Computed example of a mutant assay.
Amino acid sequence: MKFIDFQTGQILHAGPYHVSEAEVLDFAKQWDPQWFHTDPEAAAHGPFDGLIASGWHTCGMAMRLAVDAFLAGSESYASPGLAYIRWPHPVRPNDVLRLRLTVLETRVSQSNPSLGILRWRWQLRNAADIEVLDLEATSLFKLF
């Protein structure tokens, strides 16, 4: 989507994304090698009653959905950051995830009119409609 296509109040959906155990293990072994992400046997007896994906992996899955559905081919080029990020429930192997995006604000920068600013809320949910990620992001778009 182009920047002009985003409207305040708009709700967008992306997905599904199927999470495999191999993907959870591979990501965790490389980037977040804590035992509850990398050792299914130990995780089965841990506080989450099984293997869970890293929160950073969860963010990556949401990003993939957003790029594939909305940002690929757009003028999006950077983000100055997030207002907040929460992982209210874990992602597990074999989950099927869907992303809901709510456009909170779109505006053209006053100091740089070639810059579009999009603030949006990302909510990732599993097939049981349980929220596994909630964040507010700002995305920058080069308008010309």
Rank of each mutant, 00 (worst) to 15 (best):
I85F: 07
S79H: 13
A72H: 12
S76E: 12
C59P: 02
F48P: 04
W56M: 01
D95L: 09
L71K: 11
D68S: 11
L97N: 05
T58Q: 04
H57D: 00
D49F: 04
H57M: 00
G73I: 08
Y84E: 15
S79K: 13
R98H: 10
A83Y: 15
A53Y: 00
R64S: 09
S54C: 00
W87M: 02
S79A: 12
F70Y: 09
G55H: 01
L71F: 14
Y84I: 14
A83L: 15
S54Y: 00
A66L: 13
A83C: 15
A72C: 12
G81A: 10
R98A: 15
L65C: 11
Y77R: 08
Y84P: 14
A78V: 12
T58K: 03
V67L: 14
S79Y: 11
V91Q: 07
I52D: 10
G50C: 09
A83I: 15
I85R: 06
A69C: 06
M63T: 12
D49Q: 10
D68C: 09
G73W: 08
Y77F: 15
Y84C: 15
N94A: 14
V67M: 14
G55L: 01
W87F: 09
P88E: 11
G50E: 09
L97D: 03
G55N: 03
V96I: 07
A53L: 00
P90E: 08
T58P: 04
A72V: 12
M63W: 07
R86I: 05
W87P: 06
T58D: 04
V96G: 10
V96C: 11
R98G: 13
D68Q: 12
S74V: 07
R98D: 13
P90F: 03
A83Q: 15
L82S: 15
R86A: 11
R98M: 11
G60H: 06
L71N: 10
A66N: 13
S54E: 02
T58Y: 02
P88F: 06
D95K: 07
D95A: 10
I52H: 04
M61H: 05
G55W: 00
A83H: 15
S76V: 10
H57G: 01
A69I: 01
I52M: 03
Y84M: 14
V96D: 10
P88H: 08
G55V: 01
H89K: 09
A78G: 14
G60A: 09
L71I: 12
